[in-house]
């Protein structure tokens, strides 16, 4: 069982967490949005091999936060409250 750090609750078991999305995928809202732009936001992903920044939710306390992680080693570099994180690519 891997332990993930919730910014509020500290280290908790991985089964208490749910993966949300890649960080930095910002909804396009500037006037006209083409089908390609919308599809890019809705479906296309970087899906990086190695270091990544992701939005997770700790199901037991309900907090969404950003976690920095490595997709090859599964090592966790840290987690940040969303209000403190820059939610950009």
């Amino acid at each position: 069982m891997q332990l993930f750090p919730c910014p509020f609750c500290g280290l908790r078991e991985e089964s208490e967490f749910h993966y949300g999305a890649e960080a930095g995928n910002v909804r396009p809202d500037a006037g006209f949005v083409s089908a390609d732009q919308w599809s890019d936001y809705l479906h296309m992903r970087d899906n990086p091999k190695g270091a990544t920044r992701e939005i997770w939710v700790h199901l037991t306390c309900g907090e969404f936060f950003m976690m920095e992680r490595d997709t090859v080693t599964h090592r966790v570099m840290g987690s940040t409250l969303l209000e403190d994180a820059t939610h950009s690519a």
Partner: peptide
């Protein structure tokens, strides 16, 4: 395993 991964190994839960 609903954790994005390239590790070719699964987690225990």
């Amino acid at each position: 395993d609903r954790i994005p991964s390239y590790a070719q190994r699964g987690n225990l839960p």
